[in-house]
Amino acid sequence: MTSQNSKTSNRWLQPRRVTVIAMHTFTQLVRMKVFYFLSVFALIVIAANFLDLPQFNGPEAIGVGELQMLKSTCMGVMKLFAVVFVIAATALLLPKDVEDRTLYTILAKPVPRLDYLVGKIAGVLLLVFVSLLLMDLLMTVVLSFRTNHLLVDQLSWAEARGWTQEAIDSERRDIIAQGPTWSFQGAVFAIFLQSAIIGAVALLLSTFSTSTLFTIILSFLIYLIGHFQADAADYYKATAEAGSNAFTTTMTKLLSLIFPNFQLFNVIDAVIEGIPMTMNAIISLTGLSLFYVVLYTMLSWFVFSDKEF
């Protein structure tokens, strides 16, 4: 057995080894009873389904408004779960392995440190993906049911009031656009991508931070900065152009590169309002997320490869 192992390649990023660590991380989190949250989500979705909307905009807008509110509530919860979970889990897992000395036993095996890091983040992201998928399925079912129900109600109400066929068709289109569309699925995928970026940020921070709390707080701070950095960059860019300040321009560009621009993920809010999401938007968000996840993971490796235990 030994000689066979000696011949085994220990090159970086061996898919089987990364998968073993990722699946182990996934199991670890599942056994930490993370999926209990899904039952809370199910309750929220069902409760949101029965909420009545105050009628400010007249009865004709009830269908669209109710669906928007259902989507907004549920996607807000999904986003909250994904971001909070990905930060907490990533910030916790690595220091826990060091503290319990389980990391020693793993790194004492022929496991490159990069494989360990990639396996850990992949395991966390797999759990977020599966959770979002389950929440998405539940929400799609509830949204379909609610959309069909509202279509019948609203259209019969419109017919009873003698609306023209054109107005009825327009109302139907408006309601369907708020239902479980492909754009809606794209928005859920965008939530996953956003959590993947912030998870990679937490991974980087946990490689040099000695406190889990510090990692969590700083990760949330970067998440917030990500929402404002585009505005700040625009402001500094305008200021720099006006004053021809090369230093400010360079710093603005550097900060834009380091901190991800989470405003690009505002497409999620657009989808809640019923605005379709284009395939190009999904592709560009995927590309951007991949860039940041790879960048932060490589930086994590850079720090972790020289770390002493």
């Binding site: 030994t2 000696s6 319990d100 389980t102 020693y104 036993t105 095996k109 022929p110 496991v111």
Partner: peptide, 15 residues
């Protein structure tokens, strides 16, 4: 990393 093919390690007070 290759040196670890032939090693087993038990740390102090492992959890």
């Amino acid at each position: 990393v290759d040196s670890r093919n032939d090693v087993g390690f038990l740390p102090e007070n492992p959890y």
